[in-house]
């Protein structure tokens, strides 16, 4: 095994990672999978470190996944929930983070509706910052856990065709995945209505399709995105019924993909909107494996960042 060194202080996005960094994270995650299969699911690697979950947007799965990951590494974890915090009382993001930092945490995991919020924190914070989703920008740990799942099932991360179907425009999951597969040199097909898949995405090295059959054809990985009704996605197409007729995945369409293709979804799924219910529960679906891998990937990220207090960037 190549001896790799991870030199990042933060995990802000796939954008800032090298292919070596990505592989180091995945290899470390592979080693952590075993910890979760033990009776005592705990190792002392981050004993004495404090991780703050700072979530300004609703999230159950990502927040609990980071929480379980931190606890399995023996770190202490604080959940900071914006709805019950001083933000409601008018405190700025910077003041909130400075206040938290006065308690000397080692790692801050942040989710925020503003794209770039995690980057902003690195300009003054001394902790390691982990982006758990920022606006329409990036969600790096999701793309990494997707990559781990692909590698487990297809035994490779190279030479693949990856089709991403749905609301590409508003999806940070899509962008992180596009950046990751672009770095790995994979073929990327983006599928959805023109209103949600602007042709500008081709500048990232992807090909845009408005016909799901063409996009999914011979794909090794079919990644469905959720119709984000809460973000106003429904203003971008005439009706859910039309969207389902044109862009939902069902068996006949999935049959066009490569023979051993896998079906992914970052969750939560809308059954019978973007994904036909029998497809979601099929053998080709790896949706629950993605969730399990999420813990291992987040453990790897927390472990590799180490949680060392350092100088702020400026």
């Amino acid at each position: 095994m190549k001896d790799r060194t991870f030199r990042q202080d933060h995990l802000l996005g796939i954008e800032h990672l090298s292919v070596d960094d990505i592989e180091t994270i995945l290899e470390t995650a592979e080693a952590f999978i075993e910890v979760s299969s033990r009776d005592v699911k705990k190792v002392p690697a981050l004993k004495g470190k404090t991780v703050v979950n700072l979530f300004f947007e609703n999230s159950t799965r990502t927040r609990s996944s980071f929480e379980i990951a931190a606890k399995r590494l023996s770190a202490d974890l604080i959940n900071f929930n914006s709805s019950v915090s001083s933000l409601k009382k008018g405190e700025t993001l910077k003041d909130t983070v400075l206040t938290l930092e006065a308690m000397n945490p080692h790692i801050i995991v942040i989710r925020h509706s503003a794209s770039g919020a995690p980057h902003y924190l690195t300009t003054f914070a001394r902790s390691s910052i982990v982006n758990a989703g920022d606006g329409f920008h990036e969600h790096p740990t999701q793309a990494l856990l997707d990559a781990l799942t692909i590698r487990q099932r297809l035994k490779t991360l190279r030479g693949l065709k990856v089709a991403i179907v749905g609301d590409i425009l508003h999806s940070r999951v899509a962008l992180s995945n596009i950046l990751l597969h672009q770095k790995l040199g994979n073929e990327i097909a983006l599928v959805g209505p023109p209103s949600l898949v602007p042709v500008e995405f081709e500048k990232l090295g992807a090909t845009v399709y408005y016909d799901i059959r063409r996009g999914v054809k011979n794909a090794d990985v079919v990644m469905m995105l959720r119709v984000q009704a809460e973000r106003g996605a429904r203003n971008y197409f005439p009706s859910i019924r039309e969207y389902r007729n044109l862009f939902a995945i069902d068996r006949p369409i999935f049959a066009l993909a490569a023979r051993r293709a896998i079906l992914m979804h970052p969750g939560p799924i809308n059954r019978d909107v973007e994904i036909e219910t029998s497809m979601a529960d099929s053998d080709q679906s790896v949706i629950l494996q993605q969730v399990t891998n999420g813990i291992a990937v987040r453990m790897a990220v927390l472990y590799l960042l180490k949680g060392e207090i350092h100088e702020a960037l400026n």
Partner: peptide, 10 residues
Amino acid sequence: EHQPAVKKTQ
């Protein structure tokens, strides 16, 4: 300075 590589336990 950097975290040592974690290998598999089986």
